[in-house]
């Protein structure tokens, strides 16, 4: 049986598809976007976030550590043994594990809790990450299960996976939130670590299946918020018969998680100004497409 590696299940999510949703954050990602707000999602293995503010300095984590002198906090990232003893020893909630294994049945238990809210709001479940396609078999099984439970499902994806995997993952999904980071492959490569040809090809194939797609773009000032880039985005949407573009302005909320993971490569980007965002929204709307900030 396939099991999913999940780092968070967030209830009452309002911005990942219609209505009140539960968002399932899957671990593992093929890209390394420089502005990533969920850095704990990138690796597939168990990691540990250290929340310094919550730490009461009791040292119980060190006491249980099988290493001779205990690990040194902070700065320690992934335990060699994938061991979670310290996490369980912490009474203050200062150590957070970033991975939990779920069977489809276990996930369904969590998802169905809010079924009243989904029906009342036109919501459902959204797979996010990380990159959902990284665990395409699990997503496929889970989506099929939710489909049989009459729960609407959405997936947020960067589209970077072999087509077969992508199709397998989304076949039972109702709505696809397709992330586009940049339309210039070289720039894409520079900021995410991968080119975009495969992504755009997958978008085209996906559009041909008739699945409902919304394009989402994380807007970073000076990188992909230009008028010209927006024109190309509109063109991409039209070409693929897509009706809606969501603009997700950059935010730096991932910073504490970067620090808690012991990463030292956090780079702060800038959020485009509100006037700019409104200008782009108007521009997209004028072209006959729907557009919102936040989604």
């Amino acid at each position: 049986m396939t099991r999913g590696v999940i780092f968070d299940i967030q209830k009452f999510s309002l911005n990942d598809g219609s209505g009140i949703r539960t968002t399932v954050f899957l671990k593992g990602c093929p890209l390394r976007c420089a502005w990533c707000s969920n850095p704990e999602s990138q690796e597939t293995g168990l990691q540990r976030i250290y929340w310094k503010k919550k730490c009461i300095g009791c040292g119980r984590c060190v006491r249980v550590c099988p290493k001779e002198k205990g690990c040194q906090l902070p700065g320690y990232i992934v335990c060699e043994n994938q061991c979670d003893l310290c996490i369980h020893a912490c009474p203050a909630g200062a150590l957070q594990g970033t991975a939990k294994l779920y069977s489809v049945g276990e996930l369904a238990e969590a998802i169905k809790q809010d079924v009243r809210a989904y029906y009342r709001s036109g919501g459902g479940v959204t797979f996010s990450g990380g990159e959902s396609l990284f665990q395409w078999q699990f997503v496929r099984e889970a989506a099929r299960c939710f489909n049989s439970m009459l729960i609407h499902s959405a997936i947020e994806t960067c589209g970077f996976a072999p087509w077969e995997q992508m199709w397998n993952a989304v076949e039972f999904i109702d709505l696809i939130l397709f992330d586009i980071k940049h339309l210039d492959s070289a720039i894409h490569q520079k900021y995410t670590g991968a080119p975009n040809e495969l992504i755009l090809e997958n978008l085209k194939k996906l559009a041909e299946t008739g699945k409902e797609i919304i394009i989402r773009i994380p807007l970073i000032q000076g990188i992909n918020d230009g008028e010209d880039h927006t024109d190309r985005l509109i063109w991409l949407a039209r070409e693929n018969n897509i009706k809606e573009i969501h603009l997700l302005p950059y935010h730096a909320w991932g910073k504490p998680k970067h620090e808690g993971l012991g990463y030292d490569n956090f780079h702060k980007f800038e959020r485009p100004a509100d006037e700019k965002l409104n200008f782009l929204i108007k521009k997209i709307s004028r072209s006959g497409l729907q557009s919102v900030i936040g989604g």
Partner: peptide, 20 residues
Amino acid sequence: TLEGDKGIQNLVALIRTLFD
């Protein structure tokens, strides 16, 4: 959480959910 028409729709849905 309650911005725009969507915020109102979600609050209405939340209230109905609570009473369901």
